[in-house]
Amino acid sequence: MAAVETVGKQLTLDYVPANEDIAELVNAQASLTDLPAYLLDFRPILMFDSIIIAIGNASTLARGRSFKSPSPRPTCVRW
């Protein structure tokens, strides 16, 4: 998808439980904070106007990750 197609659109990245067991465990709690983070694997889903366009690999909750956005050539001024 060209970067320009995303302008003004709803592009969202959400994390969902990686499998049924984890989803069950998470749903049984009132809040995610009640569970030890290292037991829970989540996978990223990228949505374009609420339609899933990509699913990523699972990793432990609260681990640091980075999102690489499209970066065309810079021109004159950057901040």
Partner: peptide, 27 residues
């Protein structure tokens, strides 16, 4: 703008670690 600007708006968790392992999260 000759190319689109990009911003990420989101929520963070405050995370407690045991070594490099995330143990507990707080909004």
């Amino acid at each position: 703008r000759s190319s689109p600007a990009v911003a990420v708006f989101g929520y963070k968790f405050e995370t407690a670690y045991a070594g490099s392992i995330p143990t507990a999260i707080e909004p």
